[in-house]
Amino acid sequence: MRTISVITPIYNPQPEYLLAAHESLQAQKLPPGWTWEWLVQEDGNTDVAEVLLPLDDRIKHGTGRHGGVAITRNLALSRASGELVKNLDQDDLLTAGVLARDIAALTENDGVHWTTSRVLDLMPDGKLVGFDNDPKHGVLEPGDVLKHWQEHNFRLPVHPTTLCIRRDLAVMLGGWMAVPGSDDTGLLVAASVLANGFFDETVGLHYRKWPGQESAAGSKHYEAVEWTARMNLINERAKALQNLWSTVAGRWMLTP
């Protein structure tokens, strides 16, 4: 069986949200020959997720020192056995068929090494809210995402929390970037410089908006000095990768 590894960092979870995330994963139907594993990695050592979630051999629990979301995701990455790695935050919901679509995007398009999908915000009242500026369905060439991000005040054209990426590319880039917030942006931007990506116009995630989320409006996530520092670092790394790209005739020896 081929495996797609779903990575979920856990910290002080809302039980109903985590259980809903599990239900959305359990409902996924994968292509023949594929299975999923769920790397549930706690940022700390309380075993809270293991208490909340049902027994399932596909759920692989892990704990560690409290170190923040990027470190937590990378500890899960170290345990992932799948050739593909999919992000799922503890309070979000996968839509029906998204894992199958991710697998198709990464196995049926030559040279594609990461994929994202359309997102709808899930509001506290249950309403779903979309966006008007999604890119066209299909392949994203190296540099497309970075250029848009640089020209739109560090706003991405695709949502990084929907990322599904080849594990070898994620590992080569050091996993999720070690910054306090925007670690998923750091990984996506770096990957988008080195390899073709894919955007699926079908909604792949319901992104829950609620007051307790780490990136809620008005939270420390948007503190100006820190935000500027991490955006500058993500941008600097991306430009360094672009320069390195040009020294190897514009291509990397990445294999499917």
Rank of each mutant, 00 (worst) to 15 (best):
H159I: 14
P157Q: 09
M172C: 11
R155V: 13
P160G: 06
F154R: 12
R167S: 09
N153K: 11
H152Y: 08
L146H: 08
V158Q: 08
P160R: 07
D168T: 14
I165L: 03
L163A: 11
Q150L: 15
L140C: 09
A170G: 00
R155F: 07
V139A: 04
V171D: 01
L169S: 02
T161Q: 14
G143V: 06
D168C: 10
G143N: 02
R155H: 12
M172N: 09
E151G: 06
L156M: 10
C164V: 06
V145Q: 01
M172T: 12
M172S: 11
C164L: 06
T161P: 08
P157Y: 10
R167D: 04
L173I: 05
C164Y: 05
E141M: 13
P160Q: 03
V171R: 07
H152L: 12
E141A: 10
N153Y: 06
E151M: 05
T161I: 14
V139M: 03
R155P: 01
P157S: 11
A170N: 01
R166S: 11
G138Y: 08
L169R: 05
D168K: 15
T161Y: 13
A170S: 01
L173T: 00
L156D: 07
P157H: 04
E141K: 13
N153C: 08
K147R: 15
L156Q: 05
W149R: 08
H148Q: 06
A170P: 00
P142I: 00
C164N: 09
L173E: 02
R155G: 04
L163S: 10
Q150F: 14
L140H: 00
G138P: 12
K147E: 12
R166Q: 15
N153M: 10
T162L: 10
L163P: 03
R155S: 10
